[in-house]
């Protein structure tokens, strides 16, 4: 039996749509709640990011509880940057006890990328070990082998980077994540469908669901900034040129068009099992993208 509505859909052959919300820096959750209400019925699940880019924020687990309270389907993003194996297991138990069962297992950005660059980086585990730890907990013990009073049960995901400029080691890691129990993958931003096609030719041999990451760019400047500063991201020159061609003040509109076109093509050509829309601070425009991609009303 499926653990969650999202897991059920994962195996239904539906085209899946997920998105993500970055929690606020501070205790005022009104905007996050507004975005949750805006998006919860338009997508299959909402990721809540875990101090994305190592910038300290309201926690992912807190955001996921809000998604749940508001009737949405949360995906808990969990990085290994800030918690050792005790804290990770404890948070997983808390999540499960409150009905949060979809977990995206990530290593996490380096502390140097964020706004607390003097903090101690933890990385007691990596993403593969985190996936494996969840499977061990599901079998009824913690990873020290001690029996759990009540074993949790999760739907586990991970990330993969089909556009990495050095792909072979990334694919080795992908296979390790599959072996460690990842059921679904949300990819890093896809800007060149050729790389997604090549990746899927390889990945389709595994029994996992792939959701292509779609980053909505608001301008050519933002694209260049991401190329220079965001770990791993490589925005294709063709897309930068297209964004640059937009008139003044129309960059975001162009970005929505580009994202919608990518999503439409992925769906029409059945390239992978769904998309994960990352609006990076512009969560409010996600419905516009889904509408432009003709994906409105996806959830059944």
């Amino acid at each position: 039996m499926a653990n969650s509505l999202f897991e059920e859909k994962l195996y239904s052959n539906e085209f899946l749509v997920t998105t993500e919300i970055g929690p606020p820096k501070g205790a005022d959750i009104s905007e996050m709640v507004h975005h949750i209400d805006l998006l919860k019925d338009k997508v299959d699940a909402i990721n809540i990011t875990d101090h994305q880019s190592s910038v300290m924020r309201f926690p992912s687990l807190g955001g996921c509880l809000l998604v749940k309270e508001h009737g949405g389907e949360p995906i808990l993003q969990m990085t290994c940057r800030d918690r050792n194996r005790l804290a990770l297991q404890a948070d997983l138990l808390l999540a499960y006890s409150r009905g949060i069962v979809n977990v995206l297992c990530l290593t996490g950005d380096s502390v140097d990328a964020g706004d607390h660059d003097e903090a101690k980086p933890v990385f007691d585990l990596d993403s593969v070990q985190l996936l494996k730890m969840i499977r061990i907990m599901e079998s009824g013990t913690d990873i020290a082998g001690k029996e759990l009073k009540g074993a949790p049960n999760f739907c586990t995901g991970a990330s993969v980077h089909p556009e990495a400029d050095f792909i072979e080691p990334q694919l080795i890691k992908f296979e390790k994540k599959v072996s460690a129990g990842a059921q679904f993958f949300q990819t890093q931003g896809i800007f060149d469908l050729g790389s997604l096609r090549r990746f899927m030719q390889y990945a389709s041999q595994f029994n996992v669901k792939i959701l292509a990451g779609i980053i909505v760019l608001a301008s050519a400047r933002m694209a260049r900034y991401m190329n220079d500063n965001v770990p791993g991201i490589i925005v294709a020159q063709a897309i930068i040129d297209e964004l640059a061609s937009a008139g003044k003040g129309k960059g975001l509109q162009k970005g929505i068009e580009v994202a919608a076109r990518l999503i439409r093509t992925i769906k029409e050509e059945n390239l992978c099992h769904g998309v994960h829309v990352m609006a990076v601070g512009n969560e409010g425009i996600v419905p516009d993208i889904l509408e432009a991609a003709e994906l409105v009303g996806v959830p059944s």
Partner: peptide, 29 residues
């Protein structure tokens, strides 16, 4: 590796360099 991880590279590597320092080679590559 700035994260000291054991199972291969993270996805932050670009141009063969580390996400935390563009002058530092990605150890896993």
């Amino acid at each position: 590796c700035i994260k000291g991880i054991l199972n291969g590279p993270c996805a932050g590597t670009k141009n063969g360099k580390c996400e935390a320092n563009k002058d530092m080679d990605c150890a896993w590559l």
